[in-house]
Design a protein around this nucleic acid. Structure first.
Lengths: 256, 256
DNA sequence: CGTCATATTGATACACGTCAAGGCGAGTGG
DNA sequence: CCACTCGCCTTGACGTGTATCAATATGACG
C-alpha cells in the first residue's frame, strides 16, 4: 500500500531473446526430464548473471512472475512484520527452488536476497505452468517441491515452538550437514554463508544466544568453530542434542 | 520404523463403487470448475460419513493416498516430536484443504484429527493428479492451495519467533474472525471448536498463558469470553494488538 | 591501518513456563 | 434430582531460559 521504493539492488533478468546458449543445469536436481522434454523446458529458462552479495532477487510485495533455482551461492528469504521486524523464512542452496510461496498469489510473500555471489535460473511461471500441463512428469516435480516446502516449514514450526535454544542450533547444523552431503560436499566440514545474526533470526533466538551455544558446543567437543568455518566432530551426538532422534521403543502417545 | 499400531479410531473411506449420489460440494470453495469438468472431478470424490470428535483422518507416517476437503466441522493437524511432544500445525474449517504436505511424499508428515463431528470429501490423489493434467484450471487451483499453505506457514513462523504472547493470541483470534467471515458467519461472535490446550499448543504457549491473556483481553474490553463462546468487541483494536498492522508511513528497513 | 560491521563474553532483567490449588461445567449413576 | 467424578479452565506464586544491555574483541575492507 505504501509507495514502492525503487529497488536499485534488485536483479531483473533481461529478457533478451538470445536463447541459444543452452543453459547447463548441472548440479541442479529439480526438474529432471528426458532429453526431448528437457529441451522444451530449457527454452523458457533464463540464466542470471553472477549476482553479488546483498542483491535482491525480488522483494516482498513484488508481482509474482517466476520461480528460481539456485545454481551457485546461497539465498535467504524473509518477511518483514509491519512493525519492521524481519523474519528469515529459509536459506537456499544450489539445486533448491525459491519463491514457491508466490504460486497462486499475485505477489511475492517474502523477499529473497543473496548471501554471497550467487547465480540462479529463472523459470517464468506462466510458461512453466503451461509446460506442466503437457508434461505430467514436470507437474509432479513442481508439486513435489511445493510439498517439500510445506513439510520443511512444518518442521520449522515445531522447532520454533517446542525446541530449546540448544536443540535449535543443533538441528540447524545437523540439517545443514545433511544438505551439504546430498550435494556431494563434506557433511562434517563446511562454511556458513550466513552471519550469526541471520542464524539467530532464522532460529528465533538472540545473536548472543547462538554465539554462546557455539562456544558451548565447542567446549563439549561437538563441533569446532572458527569464524564461519564449522567442523562437526560428532554428527551422532549433534543429532541426539537436536531432539529429533527417534527414541523410546514404544510411545504411542495418543493426544486426547 | 516402529511397528504401526492399529488405529482403531482411524477413518477410511470405504471404496464402494456406488458413485451415483453426486456429492454436493455446497459451501466448499476449492476446486470450482465448469459443469462438464466438475462432473469428472466429482466422479473421483469420496464423501465421508459423519466422523465423531476425536477421529483420525490419517496418522503421521501413514501412506499418502488422498487429500481432503472439510465439508463440516473442524480438523487439526499435528506432528509429534520423537521426544513425544505434540505440535499442532493447523486448524481446518469447512472449505479448507487438508494433507497438502503429503504431496510428493510417500507418507503423511502430520496426523489429522477431528475436533468435533466432522465430514470431509476425500480426493484420491492419483486420479486427482491425472485430472489436473487434463484440466489446467484444476491444476492451477491445487497449486494455489499449496501456495497458500506455504504462505500461511511462513506467517506462522513469524508469529512463533517474533511475536509476544499477547500478539499471538490476538493474531489467532483476528485470523479466525476473518476466516469465519469469509464463510459467511459472524466475524465477531463465534464458538471455538478447539480447547485452550490446543490453542496454546498451536501458538507455542502454555495453557495458563492463553487463559490469562483471554481474561486480560476481556478486562480491556477487547473481547468477551464465555467458555468457548467468543465475542470480539473491537476487531480494530484486536488487529492493532496483533502486531500485523501496517504502520509508520515509511520504514524501508533494509536488512544488512 | 583506520573504520565499521560482526562476534564474543559477562551481568542483569523479564516474559513466560512450571507448579500448585481451586473452580466450573458436563456426564454418570444411584 | 442430587452427589460424584473427571476434564478443562482459571488464578496465583515462583523459577528459569533466554533476551537485553554493555563492553570488548575480532575481522573485513577500502
Amino acid at each position: 500500500m505504501a509507495e514502492k521504493p525503487t529497488h536499485v539492488d534488485s536483479f531483473r533478468v533481461q529478457n533478451d531473446r538470445q536463447r541459444n546458449q543452452t543453459v547447463s543445469t548441472t548440479g541442479c536436481q529439480p526438474f529432471v526430464l528426458p532429453a526431448a522434454e528437457s529441451d522444451k523446458l530449457e527454452r523458457i529458462i533464463e540464466a542470471s548473471p553472477a549476482l553479488k552479495k546483498g542483491t535482491h532477487l525480488f522483494h516482498q510485495g513484488d508481482p509474482f512472475m517466476s520461480i528460481f533455482v539456485v545454481r551457485a551461492g546461497t539465498l535467504k528469504t524473509y518477511t518483514v512484520t509491519n512493525e519492521g521486524e524481519e523474519q528469515i523464512t529459509g536459506f537456499y542452496f544450489p539445486g533448491e527452488v525459491v519463491a514457491l510461496g508466490g504460486i497462486g498469489n499475485d505477489e511475492h510473500p517474502v523477499s529473497a536476497k543473496t548471501l554471497e555471489t550467487t547465480t540462479v535460473l529463472e523459470y517464468p511461471y506462466q510458461p512453466l505452468d503451461s509446460l506442466a500441463g503437457q508434461i505430467p512428469n514436470l507437474r509432479t516435480q513442481i508439486v513435489s517441491c511445493m510439498g517439500k516446502e510445506i513439510r520443511d516449514e512444518q518442521q520449522m514450526m515445531l522447532l520454533l515452538s517446542k525446541k530449546t535454544a540448544e536443540q535449535r542450533v543443533a538441528t540447524f547444523l545437523y540439517k545443514l550437514s545433511v544438505r551439504f552431503k546430498q550435494r556431494g560436499y563434506s557433511a562434517t566440514l563446511f562454511r556458513l554463508s550466513m552471519s550469526r545474526n541471520e542464524i539467530s533470526n532464522y532460529l528465533g533466538l538472540a545473536v548472543e544466544t547462538v554465539s554462546r551455544i557455539f562456544t558451548r558446543f565447542q567446549k563439549q567437543q561437538l563441533i569446532k568453530v572458527e569464524g564461519k568455518e564449522i567442523e562437526i566432530l560428532s554428527l551422532e551426538r549433534l543429532y541426539t542434542v537436536s531432539g529429533d532422534e527417534k527414541q523410546s521403543p514404544e510411545q504411542s502417545v495418543q493426544y486426547r
